[in-house]
Design a binder for these strands. Structure first.
Lengths: 203, 203
DNA sequence: AGTTATACTTGACAACTGTAAAGTTATAAC
DNA sequence: GTTATAACTTTACAGTTGTCAAGTATAACT
């Protein structure tokens, strides 16, 4: 009505609304109608820009991976700080995306092969990093690098994903910066113990 | 047709089919129709036994909590074995139920207050156990019992819930007994390090 | 000015889903 | 054996959801 036509802007608005909807409700739970309303667009217009629900999701995911900053793919030199670092990354780079990951694990989705490959590569790079640090003598010999990586994944995502558990156990919301700091320090502390740096246990 | 009428058996069949469906698909994802087919029953018959979808879920959940064995609510005396114990419990007491817990965390469900209360109590009992063990000198003073409990929750559920991550990182399925044993031992190992029992680090 | 490509709207529909209500058969009590 | 109750079936419906096809308005190009 009062707005001038603008294809690019409309497309972006749809994409943004779709991101929110998909990340909050998962694929099957997401409603095209809801996306349309949120983007202030007739829902049929979405089919003018995207072939369908699935392609829309793919578009959202593609844009996601383009946008993430470089520092997120770096590793700290000391394995003691690996967990803390990965936790910070998870906190910063859109927690809602993490939530979507969970749905991906549960729903039987249009398993994007390219997407699965990317995830595998990312995880494998964590394992490789851990292995190299073990060879450098920074990680105890008797701890399996793969299992360590899995453990770190667990510790750096679980409290954020299962906000209700975090709330029930600690009383804080996982979005609370105070909790995030406490958890960061905690991760460093137990990392120090696990990796055998007993001299790190100050503060 | 060839079957004799039997209310109790039919009810059980519906409940069993509902359990599978709910645990695998979540509340919104679960289909009454699918439950009916799986129970070999006309779907309208379900409404003869239960008021509706929600009550059916409640019935399933109620029966669940009745059925679980006592040993699952006990705690090992040594905190070093707490993680391992909780992991074993999670492995044994129907992994599909764990999956349902995840859906509960994501979906905005008919948040059964009684159910939430039970969960809170269970988690709080873990915290209390950890606290008492800290007071007994079995847990380092500088580690927050609440955060420790949260960490243990993460470590004992994450690999089971996110089977795809486990697969991508370790190459094994989380249902693989071999993996479960490896992870059990790993949990004990890092627990020993975290809790400062360096003498426990034999095999 | 007129053709055309593109942005957007309208109307419709077919599949699916939870649920109600009425109808039908078997079982058990009298 | 009649009857009441409970087990099961059939028919039906209203709401939702993804998608299509056809129409209209606007901007761009010739």
């Amino acid at each position: 009505m009062g707005e001038i036509r603008n294809a690019e802007r409309t497309r972006k608005r749809i994409l943004e609304a779709a991101r929110k909807e998909f990340f909050e409700k998962g694929y099957t739970g997401a409603r095209i109608e809801a996306i349309a309303v949120n983007a202030d667009v007739k829902k049929q217009l979405i089919y003018h820009y995207f072939k369908g629900k699935e392609e829309l999701l793919v578009a959202v995911l593609d844009q996601m991976t383009v946008e993430l900053p470089e520092w997120t793919t770096q590793f700290p030199s000391d394995p003691v700080h690996t967990a803390e670092h990965r936790f910070q990354v998870n906190c910063q780079t859109r927690m809602d995306f993490l939530k979507f990951t969970v749905w991906e694990a549960l729903e039987e989705q249009p398993q994007q092969n390219s997407r699965k490959k990317r995830r595998t590569e990312a995880l494998q790079s964590y394992v490789d990093d851990m292995k190299s640090k073990q060879e450098a003598g920074l990680v105890p010999e008797d701890l399996d690098p793969e299992l360590l990586t899995l453990a770190i994944s667990a510790l750096t995502t679980y409290p954020l994903i299962f906000g209700d558990v975090t709330k029930m156990v600690t009383g804080s919301e996982p979005t609370d910066p105070q909790f995030q700091e406490k958890w960061s320090k905690f991760l460093t502390k137990i990392s120090a113990r696990i990796f055998g740096k007993d001299d790190f246990m100050n503060e």
